[in-house]
């Protein structure tokens, strides 16, 4: 049983210390964590961006990523979407008893690599172990802080008529890659999750134009949900063209099979940017030069009529509303 996480590992006693030392500190040690203090203490100066998120992905390992990498990238991306340079993260594990230690170690290693790549530090953390059935293998909660450079003002309420809408690449890769591993749905595909850190992409976009109005990563709920949020927050309409939205063939195939619309499928390494029309080409060029934005394209624009609504031009030239995702995306037969 030594290779499994037990309830005792969450008791606060010796086993808990052992877990922190052997499983976490070995990989993640830094000047903050090795102090073993109850809270991390540091200076911040400037405008601070602060975010939190929880990760409950099932399965915890999926093609192109795992829950650990996802947690770091996801948090860093949320900070980047405010234009912030991500600095410090907290990491809290809720582990279902019985999780193999080897899996936990693999995830912690993946977290370590992700923090190195994104140049952030895990400065505080926590672990709880719960009874079997009370959690699904492993849940991770994070928080993150970053500093926003002067002159940058990015918010979902900044979109104004005339602005261009840029999408950084293909949609639906993450959702379909994860779904391909689900019991009962299993289909095989070479497709990998697009799980990626977007900090460098955002930094290069801001270098091209500090006036970017909105940035958002279309995660759960997909592109449609993000566009609807932006339209509602900014009280404008967003018009996009169906034929301009890049979708991989595998994503399209899986969506046809399950009765999904790729517009609603989750992404973990894409962003939507709303920029001034005169800046659009500059920003687009900068995006295409970054690996994570190489398929970036302008998919539409912001208009004044129908505030709060997203309108899509179909391949027949007709227009229709696209609304937010309601509930779960359930595979359907009809």
């Amino acid at each position: 049983m030594k290779d499994k996480i037990l309830l005792a590992h969450g008791s606060g006693g010796k086993l808990a210390h052992e877990l922190i030392e052997k499983n976490f500190l070995k990989a993640l040690a830094n000047p903050f964590l090795v102090k073993w203090d109850d809270s991390a203490v540091f200076h911040l100066s400037g405008r601070v961006a602060f975010t939190t998120d929880s990760y409950v992905v099932n399965p915890i390992f999926f093609p192109g990523g795992d829950i650990g990498k996802l947690a770091v990238y996801g948090t860093v991306n949320d900070l980047a979407m405010s234009g912030a340079k991500p600095l410090y993260l907290s990491l809290s594990f809720i582990i279902e008893e019985g999780l193999p230690q080897s899996e936990l170690n693999e995830i912690v290693d993946s977290i370590q690599k992700a923090t190195q790549e994104t140049r952030v530090e895990i400065v505080t953390g926590d672990t709880k172990v719960v009874h079997r059935g009370s959690a699904d293998k492993l849940f991770i909660n994070t928080a993150g802080v970053g500093i926003i450079p002067d002159g940058v003002d990015i918010s979902g309420s900044n979109a104004s008529p005339g602005d261009k809408v840029i999408l950084s690449g293909t949609i639906g890769d993450h959702g379909i890659a994860v779904l391909s591993q689900r019991e009962g749905l299993s289909f095989s595909t070479q497709l990998e999750s697009d799980c990626a850190p977007l900090g460098s992409l955002v930094a290069e976009m801001l270098a091209a134009s500090p006036n970017i109005h909105c940035l958002r990563d279309p995660t759960r709920g997909g592109l449609t949900t993000t566009l609807n949020e932006l339209a509602k927050q900014s009280k404008v309409s967003i018009r996009i063209e169906e034929e301009k939205i890049p979708v991989r063939e595998e994503v399209l195939g899986a969506c046809e099979m399950l009765g999904f619309d790729p517009l609603y499928v989750a992404n973990e390494g894409k962003l939507v940017a709303i920029v001034l029309p005169e800046d659009a080409d500059k920003v687009l060029k900068a995006m295409r030069e970054n690996h994570y934005g190489k398929d970036a394209t302008i998919i539409g624009e912001v208009t004044a009529e129908h505030p709060g609504r997203v309108v899509m031009k179909t391949c027949l030239g007709a227009s229709r509303i696209i609304d937010m995702l309601v509930g779960d995306l359930l595979p359907r037969i009809c």
């Binding site: 299993s186 095989s188 070479q190 063939e249 399209l252 195939g253 046809e256 099979m257 037969i333 009809c334």
Partner: peptide, 25 residues
């Protein structure tokens, strides 16, 4: 009644591996 075209890649008894736009099932 959602039904979509798939290409049969191999057959084994009454079952087959079929490809739909780059995914197989």
């Amino acid at each position: 009644c959602l039904a979509i075209p798939a290409l049969i890649e191999s057959i084994e008894d009454k079952e087959a591996e079929a490809e739909i736009g780059g995914i197989t099932r």
